[in-house]
Amino acid sequence: MTHRLARMSSLSRDDVAHLAGLARIELSDAELDRMVGELGVILESVAKVQQAPTDGVAPMSHPMPLTNVTRPDVVRPTLGAEAALAGAPEAEQQRFSVPRILDED
């Protein structure tokens, strides 16, 4: 992706279209028009984090200290194929059936 995003707090319509593409959401023209204005207002507001006295503060990603969790290496029941596929939009031969995954060119 070579698209350059505009400066913060001033997203253009093209920027929002680009971001929607990255997020895999096909937005209509009307949705895009609306979203540009709304995101602008929200971004202006959340940019306030840049005014906080954060010099020398270590970022916090999680409320509790995280440690890796393991379990004993023993077999336990899992979902069977039928249950796992029960919610699939399309299934074939005990597998999820999906649209083509490669572009034609």
């Binding site: 959340v46 984090v49 840049q50 906080a52 006295p53 970022p59 916090m60 990603s61």
Partner: peptide, 10 residues
Amino acid sequence: SAQKVRALIA
């Protein structure tokens, strides 16, 4: 920046 603010709030 938001993650640093989070630390400040904690």
